[in-house]
């Protein structure tokens, strides 16, 4: 998961920071100050706005090959909404969306639950040094690049190189980690491993920020450690749960690396259109169907936008009520 997409503030905070500075300086200062933002915004237009606009533009064209007599000449012609019509009828693409959505619905709560458990345990442990040691150990996976983590787990799952299949046999279970039934579990576990420490750190810092006098009050009222965690600590760090939830959802929507590597180990299970980004990638670079890939990108962007918006609305309404 890239940090770029990984750490975002819930947009709530934007409201506070859009208030302009109260004093008004002479305009020359402000003009010079505005110049400092120019490199960023010029670059932003170049690597964010233009590509999206270009993708929209590309998505309404299509390549027709009209070299009927062995002359494989092809021309790009305007196609209107043909690509979109095709995309809406593309069952494999929508199936990949549903596949990933189902996976997310199961994997994200488990992943966040485990991170939260780790964070609560770390918050409950006594002794600075012991806490520091465990925090460091749990953060080890954060230092492993995502693609390397995926390769390592594929080797661990592999019956030839990894100990996991043998361990399964030992307890009488004959597991093939790449079989269609287990595959998502294998990928889910790999993602838990990659993000556990990172999410734990966000939740743990939020737990440290919980007002100690509230915890004291709960203690005086006779609440046990479990009760305190459930009724006091967790509600108090809801913000960080929403944050990590949002990070997880966005990460899941663009899931690509992990299934791609699993495809290397088991191409018959992990098909080319296993996830939405994989569909786009293989449409563009294997089928050379750039225009169609552009249309799929635009569609996926719209779906992701709607998802994020709905999630944001849902969680903030819950928090307000």
């Amino acid at each position: 998961m890239s940090v770029n997409s990984a750490i975002h503030q819930p947009a709530t905070r934007s409201g506070a920071s859009t208030v302009p500075p109260r004093r008004s300086w002479r305009p020359t200062h402000n003009r010079a100050g505005a110049m400092l933002a120019v490199p960023f915004f010029v670059g932003f237009v170049f690597v964010f706005v233009l590509p999206i606009a270009y993708a929209v533009f590309q998505s309404v064209y299509t390549v027709r090959s009209d070299g009927g007599l062995g002359l494989s000449e092809s021309t790009t012609v305007f196609a209107g909404f043909d690509n979109y019509a095709r995309a809406f009828g593309d069952e494999a693409f929508w199936a990949s969306m549903v596949r990933v959505a189902l996976f997310a619905v199961i994997q994200i709560p488990i992943s966040l639950g485990l991170s939260l458990t780790a964070a609560l345990l770390l918050d409950a442990v006594t002794g600075e040094r012991r806490g520091g040691l465990f925090r460091a150990l749990l953060l080890v996976p954060y230092m492993v690049p995502a693609i390397v983590a995926t390769l390592v787990w594929v080797y661990l799952y592999s019956p030839r190189t990894g100990p996991l299949t043998a361990a399964g046999n030992l307890v009488g279970a004959d597991v093939n980690f790449f079989s269609p039934d287990i595959l998502w579990g294998s990928i889910g576990n790999l993602i838990v491993w990659m993000v556990l420490g990172f999410n734990m750190l966000i939740m743990y810092s939020a737990l440290r920020g919980v007002d100690r006098s509230i915890l004291e009050a709960a203690r005086v009222d006779g609440a046990g450690a479990f009760r305190t965690a459930w009724s006091v600590k967790i509600p108090n760090i809801r913000g960080s749960l929403v944050l990590t939830g949002l990070i997880s959802i966005i990460g899941m929507l663009q899931i690509f690396n992990e299934p791609l590597v699993f495809r290397g180990a088991s191409p018959q299970t992990v098909t080319k259109d296993f996830t939405p980004i994989m569909s786009i990638y293989f449409q563009a670079f294997t089928s050379n169907n750039y225009n169609y890939a552009a249309a799929l990108s635009v569609l996926l962007a719209v779906v992701i936008g709607l998802f994020s918006f709905a999630f944001y609305k849902l969680t903030t309404r819950k928090a307000n009520s």
Binding site: Q9, R31, G33, A34, Q254, Y281, A294
Partner: peptide, 28 residues
């Protein structure tokens, strides 16, 4: 630290684009 026209929009653009997954931009 500065106040100029477009600053608010700029800030909104910055925050809004957190939600755009980098992977999605890559093919375009």
């Amino acid at each position: 630290k500065f106040n100029y026209r477009g600053r608010g929009v700029g800030l909104a653009v910055v925050i809004g684009s957190f939600l755009v997954p980098s992977t999605l931009i890559t093919v375009p």
